[in-house]
Computed example of a mutant assay.
Amino acid sequence: MSYHVNEKGYYGDFGGAYIPEMLYPNVEELRRNYLQIINDESFKKEFELLLKDYVGRPSPLYHARRLSERYGATIYLKREDLNHTGAHKINNAIGQIMVAERLGKKRIIAETGAGQHGVATATVCALRGLECVVYMGEIDIKRQAPNVARMKMMGATVVPATSGSKTLKDATNEAMRDWINNPVDTHYIIGSAVGPHPYPDMVARFQSIISEETRWQLKEKTGKETADYVLACVGGGSNAIGMFYHFLDDEDVKLIAVEAAGLGVDSGESAATTVLGKEGVLHGSRSILMQTPDGQVVEPYSISAGLDYPGIGPQHAHLFKSKRASYVSATDDEAMQAGLLLTRLEGIIPAIESSHALAHLEKMSFKGGETVVVCLSGRGDKDLDTYIRYFGL
């Protein structure tokens, strides 16, 4: 079975481009050109150089010894939190902005939830001298104030989304409206592995650097390129698809994606898409999403601004349905405790998104000797207020 996109833009039953007629020229221009652009030798050379000298890649694969002792396995953390801007999002932002430049676009728009994708986009726009507009839910603007300040310092315009739940879904809607109104000079950077084809494939390719590095780093440390388990948090799913990408065809590697259960899967305040969702269309692709019986999108909830998305990317939907990867969930409480535990054991404050992946370690049982890689997708600076309030620090 193939776990990658086919020539029609589908992963099994999922994917495609379900878009209004007015967006068709923009998406079609991308679809026709993206592979040729990113496979060009000069593109690859420049992209790799920026990842090395600007982002600081390769990100370390860190053996978390005290965490390993606690759980009885050899646990490695893929340190995406050490990238410039503090998360994995910069990998995709650089790649897509380079594609946009080669398509002659001078204006970049983006949506953001936790703010990390917005910061990454604003950062690369500053680097390349491009106009940048970031749409962000009004609620997220309040809970991620440091990231909003960073974007503004970089010269980006931050536009609040004031409709619906005032979070990521609504920011995405606003960004798509902007793109419809400005089709010629504007490129819309989607920050997650969602949206119409070719976005999920493009994002996955740019983020696949995570698992590409992990393979040779594992070989250096263990003598073997694969791990027994690979874990990542998943909202829309960009860090997870990057972490899984180069292990998809190694069937002996167990892939575990951890969604946000919020206050509990059945609480009505959750973002556990694979448990609560059904197949349908969201933001331009067929996937699995949380919806009412008559097809209205259900508002998700998570303490983590980056995971409260009502769907998952189409490649994840395919991995879930084909059972190639396990999709599980962690509650707010479980994630917060896991974040504090890592901080106390290893001196690393993780983003609350990443803490969801760490939380699943509590539910695993190891015989001893297993190798586990957890994608530490971002650092916790942006979440300090939430941690402080939660723990009364």
Rank of each mutant, 00 (worst) to 15 (best):
V99C: 08
Q144N: 08
R66I: 04
K44W: 04
F47T: 07
R102C: 01
N83S: 06
I75H: 02
Y34L: 01
H84E: 12
G86D: 09
A110T: 05
Y34W: 15
T85P: 07
K142P: 00
R79Q: 11
Y34R: 05
Y71L: 04
Q144Y: 06
E48W: 13
T121E: 04
K45F: 13
G137I: 12
L61C: 05
A87G: 15
Q116Y: 09
K52W: 12
N83W: 12
H88Y: 13
L127M: 15
L103A: 10
A145C: 00
Y62I: 05
V134S: 02
V133R: 15
R70T: 12
I97W: 09
R128V: 02
N33W: 12
K106F: 03
I141T: 01
E101Q: 15
R31N: 12
A87T: 10
N92T: 13
C132K: 03
Q144H: 04
G129K: 09
R143C: 00
T85V: 14
E101K: 15
R128E: 06
M136D: 01
I94E: 09
S59D: 06
V133A: 03
Y62W: 15
A87I: 07
L61I: 03
R143L: 09
N92Y: 11
G118D: 00
V134Y: 02
R31M: 03
I139S: 05
M98D: 03
K89I: 08
F43W: 14
N91C: 06
G95H: 13
D53G: 00
N147E: 01
T112G: 02
G72C: 11
N91S: 01
K44I: 13
K106D: 08
Q144W: 10
M136A: 09
K45P: 01
E69P: 01
I90Y: 11
G115L: 09
I37G: 08
V55N: 04
G118P: 02
V119K: 14
Y135Q: 06
R143M: 10
Q96P: 05
K89G: 09
V134Q: 06
M98R: 00
Q144C: 08
I139E: 07
L35G: 02
H117W: 15
R143E: 06
L127I: 08
A93T: 03
I38W: 04
R102T: 09
R65K: 15
L35M: 08
E69T: 11
